[in-house]
């Protein structure tokens, strides 16, 4: 039962070599794996140091003042923060019902042959470059909104503060709608995987109790997947908050807070994209860095919440990992 030293000594050289190459391989992989999280910290650090002058100069008032005057060197980011949140919320209001409908249809009601093609096409929406969405928005969406959406909206809800003013095209509404179209594939794809992860036994339990298929979805499947579905929505929110190009092209880039959807607005991402090249003074640049820092913290936090919720639905299984 003792070991066989002869056997072990027979090829010491090759064993040793394997061992060393294994160790190198492991170290390289570990380095790469740790490099990415490290990159997030580096980005955070760069943003923070870049934003330091503005942070010192304006303190927290940066968050709630509205003046953005590069000449007088006074900066307040409230309109951008407002515009970012408003366009994202508007996008969610439009995208969530649509995306959930797609996901529920695909997992519960679609005939088998339709499932893959529709899922594929919906997810393909996520592959279209942002700038293409923006161009499409300018040439198709805005004329469509002007001709077919805004007039009836004004006729019915024109008395509310949300639809005051004249619709020139570039507006919170146009930005929100384009964002909605862009985040539908993310919410739909993750929701679909969450719903697929709901055990069949839950559906069967409801059906066996005399539920119709829709009742089974509403009373058993959706509640079971609720955390994951909320996660999917928040993931969409994360996308919407950070989306830059298409929104910059459609939202109008006006540094002002207004509740009317028909008026132009501004987002943090759009401001950074538009103004970085012309930010000639240190403080101007620093103010934009601070905007970037706010956006970074906001989107990272939102995405973190989303992922935790999604993973919670099927403990251990990375539900929605494919789409994440």
């Amino acid at each position: 039962m003792t070991s066989l030293p002869v056997e072990r000594l027979a090829r010491p050289q090759s064993l040793h070599a394997t061992d060393r190459s294994d160790r190198i391989y492991r170290r390289v992989l570990t380095g790469f794996a740790l490099g990415l999280p490290l990159l997030i910290l580096i980005i955070l650090g760069v943003l923070f140091t870049g934003a330091l002058p503005a942070l010192k100069r304006f303190g927290p008032t940066f968050l709630w003042t509205s003046t953005w005057d590069p000449v007088a060197e006074i900066y307040g980011a409230a309109p951008m923060i407002f515009g970012t949140l408003a366009s994202s919320v508007l996008a969610l209001l439009i995208a969530v019902p649509l995306a959930l409908s797609v996901a529920i249809f695909l997992t519960e009601f679609s005939p088998g042959w339709l499932r893959q093609p529709v899922a594929f096409l919906v997810e393909l929406l996520a592959a279209i470059p942002s700038v293409v969405y923006g161009t499409w928005g300018i040439f198709v969406l805005i004329p469509f909104l002007r001709a077919h959406v805004v007039p009836p909206l004004k006729a019915v809800l024109g008395w509310t503060p949300f639809l005051q003013g004249v619709f020139y095209g570039n507006s919170l509404l146009a930005g929100g709608v384009i964002l909605a179209i862009m985040i539908v594939p993310y919410i739909a794809a993750v929701s679909r995987e969450v719903l697929l992860a709901v055990p069949a036994s839950q559906r069967e339990a409801a059906l066996a109790m005399g539920a119709t298929r829709w009742e089974a979805v509403r009373s058993a499947v959706l509640p079971y997947g609720r955390a994951g579905l909320i996660g999917a929505v928040i993931l969409g929110l994360g996308r919407a908050l950070g989306e830059t190009m298409a929104v910059t092209m459609l939202i109008g880039n006006r540094h002002d807070i207004g509740v009317s959807l028909l008026q132009p607005a501004y987002t943090m991402a759009a401001a950074i994209a538009n103004e970085f090249s012309e930010a000639t003074t240190n403080l101007y640049q620093s103010a934009l860095f601070e905007v970037g820092l706010i956006l970074f913290v906001l989107t990272v936090a939102v995405n973190a919440i989303a992922r935790v919720l999604i993973w919670r639905v099927a403990r251990g299984q990375a539900v929605g990992s494919r789409a994440l």
Partner: peptide, 25 residues
């Protein structure tokens, strides 16, 4: 009525699990 191989209560309260059928129907 049907009872399955593995217990499959809904992720609701004990009360809501039992009240599921009466409510539904």
């Amino acid at each position: 009525g049907m009872v399955f191989q593995r217990p499959n209560p809904f992720p609701k309260s004990v009360y809501d699990n039992v009240a599921y059928g009466p409510r539904l129907n």
